[in-house]
Design a binder for these strands. Structure first.
Length: 165
DNA sequence: TCATTGATTTCA
DNA sequence: GAAATCAATGAT
């Protein structure tokens, strides 16, 4: 299967996200189909971690697309994000669902994703990358989950993309 | 609905 | 330094 290259990730997160469900995340040569993603777009997006500017944790989002942003939430769960867009524009696609198990915390626990993946580049790594999907899928959208603190208009943005049967 | 859990962020 | 915060989950 064709490996997704840098050009795929260097587009706007709102262009990349609807294309991610149905594609395969390959970790240690095992493919997992992506079923659900969310877009986090720039410092103006109050739901995005980069809203307060560049910090040590969010620095990777300011790099060009293809890098991996991993962070710990609620002291227990690693969240897995793919950085998109050009350099100096903080954007990331949060991978919320993988076929076979739902929930972003579950998938990272099952796949043993942790801080060692932070800053990895899926275009250059030999243990993690993405490939084209073979299946024809239907995508639906809805508001993002768990970002009530962001306020309007961000809580209402239909920036969650997922597969429907 | 509540406890868990710990890095990041904020306040002093 | 200390305190509050939090893109979640599972048990109750």
């Amino acid at each position: 299967m064709k490996r997704l290259d840098l050009a795929f990730f260097q587009r706007d997160v709102l262009t990349v996200c609807p294309e991610l469900p149905g594609k395969f995340l390959v970790i240690n040569h095992t493919p997992y189909m992506i079923t659900e993603v969310e877009a986090y777009r720039g410092e103006e997006d109050m739901a995005c971690h980069a809203k307060k500017g560049r910090t040590e944790r969010t620095e990777v989002m300011y790099r060009c697309g293809g890098h991996i942003y991993v962070y710990l939430i609620y002291g227990m769960y690693w969240m897995f994000n793919l950085v998109t867009g050009p350099k100096d524009i903080p954007q990331a696609a949060l991978i919320r669902g993988i076929e076979g198990f739902n929930g972003p915390g579950k998938l990272t626990r099952y796949l043993k994703i942790n801080k060692s993946f932070y800053g990895e580049n899926v275009c250059a790594s030999d243990r993690i990358w993405l490939t084209e999907g073979e299946q024809h899928v239907t995508i639906k959208t809805s508001p993002r989950i768990g970002i009530d603190y962001a306020g309007e208009p961000w809580v209402s943005k239909p920036w969650r993309f997922f597969i429907t049967p």
